[in-house]
């Protein structure tokens, strides 16, 4: 007596015929769109995309209608819509990255990260100056903002996850509301509360403080989510060993959430590193290297890009600005990659 063992199948996945049919419809739509552009009034890239969209809709509907009936045909339309939407979402990203890379590489040179613009104007040849001052300023300001906002953000997150007092809901709402504060309002606030009444001068520290307002909600919300991921057993174990709440948080929960907190820092930095509007109001944006945040105008990457675009006009100025954008974008890429890597690891 022989026993036949059926080979495992995957009926939920599209079979070969299904894939062939999908591909067929796709190719047919492209051909139809091409023909429409060729023989009717529609022309150009936009015409092609529009006619491709409609021919995809029509052909999909027709094909699945004759194959499986009306319900399946309607279902296929939704698929066309969603795929179209995701393509539309991705086009700007690809276009932005391609633009920055293709225009920014012209402005790269060896002194870019070390020289400053003290002796060069934006219209001078590219090798005459660099964005060292802007880089130093951005690092100082973001670092300053981080020093203030990290403790506040983590304390807020601890209040929301560990203490869970009567104010949990209002505070969660306020953090949410704070993340929606327009960046220019943060700049105006620093102007009205500190610069006009107290210091009467623009400086890097004021930029830091304005960025802090924008950074706290990002850090608080990310840290809250990370602390929620810590299993409750760890808290119970800490308390069961006789630890007070403070010892449990400091000795068990925060170490377990370490990589999550680093992720929070990174996302916070990524949020503010390209922030422009408040820096235009409160930092003064100097052209020379200035390492003293409490005194004098301080440059920053966004300010440098802004100035190069708006006061220049020559190809050199644009090359400078796009190179600055490339540096900024690569910072964001690096930070984001780090955050992905850290949050992809296991918690605890």
């Amino acid at each position: 007596m022989t026993q036949t063992i059926p080979t495992p199948q995957r009926p939920w996945q599209p079979s070969k015929t299904d894939r062939f049919e999908t591909l067929g419809v796709l190719v047919a739509s492209f051909v139809l769109a091409g023909l429409t552009v060729e023989f009717t009034g529609l022309n150009g890239k936009l015409g092609f995309v529009v006619s491709l969209f409609f021919s995809l809709l029509i052909l999909n509907y027709g094909f699945y209608f004759q194959k499986q009936g009306k319900a399946a045909a309607k279902d296929s339309l939704l698929q066309v819509f969603t795929v179209m939407a995701i393509v539309l979402t991705l086009i700007p990203i690809v276009s932005i990255i391609a633009t920055v890379v293709s225009k920014g590489y012209k402005g790269l040179h060896w002194g870019l990260l070390t020289k400053d613009m003290a002796l060069a104007s934006v219209n001078d040849p590219i090798v005459a100056g660099g964005l060292g001052h802007a880089l130093a300023g951005t690092i100082l300001m973001v670092g300053g903002a981080l020093i203030i906002s990290f403790p506040i953000g983590v304390l807020t997150a601890l209040y929301l996850t560990e203490i869970r007092g009567p104010l949990t809901r209002p505070i969660r709402f306020l953090v949410q509301a704070m993340s929606g504060v327009p960046s220019i309002v943060a700049g105006l606030f620093i102007l009205s509360s500190l610069i006009y009444p107290v210091t009467k001068a623009l400086s890097g520290m004021m930029g830091s403080l304005a960025l802090t307002i924008l950074m706290i909600p990002t850090i608080a919300r990310t840290a809250e989510e990370m602390l929620r991921l810590i299993p409750n057993e760890l808290r119970e174990a800490g308390v069961a060993l006789g630890g007070t709440q403070w010892r449990t948080v400091a000795g068990v929960i925060l170490p377990a959430a370490k990589s999550g907190l680093v992720t929070a820092i990174i996302l916070g930095v990524a949020r503010i590193i390209g922030e422009t509007a408040p820096l235009l109001l409160v930092t003064g944006g100097g052209d020379a290297l200035n390492l003293n945040p409490t005194e004098g105008a301080m440059g920053s990457l966004p300010y440098y890009i802004w100035k190069s675009f708006l006061t220049g006009g020559t190809p050199e100025a644009f090359a400078r600005a796009w190179a600055g954008m490339l540096v900024l974008l690569s910072f964001i890429f690096i930070l984001f990659g780090l955050a992905r890597y850290l949050s992809g690891r296991k918690v605890g």
Partner: peptide, 28 residues
């Protein structure tokens, strides 16, 4: 005692968003 201090500190930190939003409205 240590927990009381801890809770006070964390609550003060948690109030930061309230304080900052209030200050923004006040100074503007």
């Amino acid at each position: 005692r240590s927990d009381q201090i801890f809770r006070i500190i964390v609550t003060i930190g948690g109030m930061a968003s309230l304080v900052i939003l209030g200050l923004i409205a006040l100074f503007l």
